[in-house]
Design a protein around this nucleic acid. Structure first.
Lengths: 350, 350
DNA sequence: CTGAAAGCGCTAACAG
DNA sequence: CTGTTAGCGCTTTCAG
């Protein structure tokens, strides 16, 4: 017993298919008499429209896809929330996928037979895609990219100024009087563009303050995860002359570092100040709370959706735009200290 | 200049549409001569298949939808990751949406014209849906529900045993010798089924241990967020006789409570032990780390996808199944204490 | 191995 | 206000 079609309903109600369609979609006015008959038939047959057929006819699905490396990285989860909201404001339904940071899966998205070709447009936060990959893509959906990876100007892009964000984070530490400032999260290879920009910002800040760059204080990490931040912080503290501040390339690294420091009895921020980037909510509730530079996720999402919708609806020339979103320094306890307690930091007490 | 269709390619290559389709899909063998011609035309016209048309013909999209209340609640983000992986193993692409815990949006999902009707099946984690809503739903996609909300046996369901999970968490606190055990997260109204089951488990544990139930120690919260957990913990500590342990209905509440306790100079776990439910990664990195009861998210995702796929592919009778997933107690520092330091807890040190 | 053609279910232009 | 009908672009049966 297959699903009822419009035709089945029309037959049963003794009207034309057109009338049924009108009733279902509330289009043209339908006389009450017919409407009643149709409604009855609709109910009896338990009619549900075939959305795929409708989409085919209309040439659109009303769906936007957001693809991020990892959904359980809070930054991406928070960004997803903002993007879904922005999509709704434009009449689109945003659905989210993740690639597990797997290069092959990133590439799959763009292939001819990707299921995401069914979406009207895609917002991608790529890790390993090359411009080449984007160029030969086999699906037709317009694309907007997130982040500064891939920078050749042939695709629309939304990102914060990563150099400035990193510089401001580092300058905040310098303003606190710190001089041995470590950095966790460098990725000096192919796909580490964002990390490299943050390294550049870090070094700019040091330079401007006349602080010598010490490569031993810069720890690379393959990914931006808590565990790696914790490990790197431990290593740093084992140095002959350990840092008095740590700039982490994202909040997750910073949160990991925070725990390993406090756990080891290091007082934060008295002994070591810590700052991250991302502005995730988790950082408001760590102990101590985490200072951070927060990209305006709301704005990133809005700009990305607007660019994409313009591309889809042809209201913008497909000339790719490089859009810059705002970021804000949010100093909290991990650099300012725990106020209102008359104490100098958090540590282990017996 | 519209997108090239199969027909365009066929015309250009001087072959039939059928042959082009075969080449594109690698179906029936095609002679090398024709294949070459087709490939050329494909390239010249930059052909990309219309996935919607294909789906219409095939009657499926290969897409599964996962809908959760809030993606930036780590439990759901982690569950999403597991579900996406499980979907892939079954040949489906899972895409994720969120409702912002908005009743109206939950209901929208089920309407006749919901865009999610385009998905082959839906996994929903509902908050406010009623069985009635589910019954009159206008879209055709099979549904599997997550969580214990809605319990009338007419829809497939995957959930942990919430009563047992809560009981075990509470028993863990009791085993530590705690007797004034508070609870944060009750929701004594319509849509708070899960919370109510956890309250039941909490009370069972108290009863079995012969500890009197004290309603002042039970704090309701509208949502399961960090901020509310922090506020509730602060209130509890202001009681004439404050608790010596707190069972939070999820990890986010617990993490909020943790911060407010430590921030106030309360030693955790010496003065107050804390435990949550969810087993989110964040709890491994808080200071102190968070004891928790972890639902097996991998298993939940796998079971949900399996049930759904069986429904879609008709390999299972549509007889709804109530599936129970496993959970595990993970004791960590917030109840066991910080080992290896010879100290008794974390606090503020001057 | 390849071509012709039916038709998936729906929308909307065209007629009346 | 309502009926008829031509496709949307693709897959696939049926012939050849």
């Amino acid at each position: 017993m297959r699903e009822a079609t419009l035709k089945d309903v029309a037959t049963r109600a003794g009207v034309s298919i057109r009338t049924v369609s009108n009733v279902v979609n509330g289009y043209a006015p339908v006389s009450d008499a017919l409407r009643a008959k149709v409604e009855t038939a609709l109910g009896e047959l338990d009619y549900r429209p075939n959305v795929i057929a409708r989409n085919l006819k209309q040439g659109r699905s009303g769906l936007l896809g957001l693809v991020v490396p990892e959904l359980d990285v809070p930054y991406f989860a928070e960004l997803a929330r903002a993007t879904i909201a922005a999509g709704r404001r434009h009449g689109y339904t945003v659905m989210v996928d993740q690639t597990d940071a797997d290069p092959e899966r990133e590439r799959e998205l763009l292939t001819r037979n990707s299921r995401l070709a069914l979406f009207d447009g895609l917002i991608l936060s790529p890790l390993t895609l090359t411009v080449q990959d984007l160029r030969v893509r086999g699906n037709r959906a317009p694309i907007v990219l997130l982040g500064e990876h891939l920078f050749d100007g042939s695709f629309s892009h939304v990102a914060i100024d990563n150099v400035a964000a990193a510089r401001e984070a580092t300058e905040h530490l310098i303003a606190l009087g710190r001089t041995r400032i470590a950095a966790i999260g460098d990725q000096p290879y192919q796909t580490g563009e964002t990390a490299q920009l943050r390294t550049a910002g870090y070094r700019q800040a040091l330079e401007r303050a006349g602080i010598a760059y010490d490569p031993r204080l810069v720890r690379p990490t393959e990914r931006f995860h808590r565990r790696l931040g914790a490990a790197a912080a431990t290593e740093l503290m084992a140095l002959p002359s350990p840092p008095d501040a740590i700039f982490c390339y994202n909040d997750l690294l910073a949160l990991g570092a925070l725990r390993s420091l406090v756990r080891a009895g290091v007082r934060v921020p008295d002994d070591v100040a810590v700052i991250g980037i991302d502005g995730i909510e988790e950082g408001e509730f760590s102990m101590p709370s985490l200072s951070t530079v927060a990209p305006d996720k709301q704005q990133i999402a809005t700009l990305a959706v607007e660019s994409l919708v313009a591309l889809i609806e042809g209201t913008a020339a497909p000339a790719p735009a490089e859009v810059r979103a705002a970021h804000t320094l949010l100093p909290r306890e991990s650099t300012l200290g725990i106020s209102g307690l008359g104490v100098s930091g958090l540590g282990i007490s017996g």
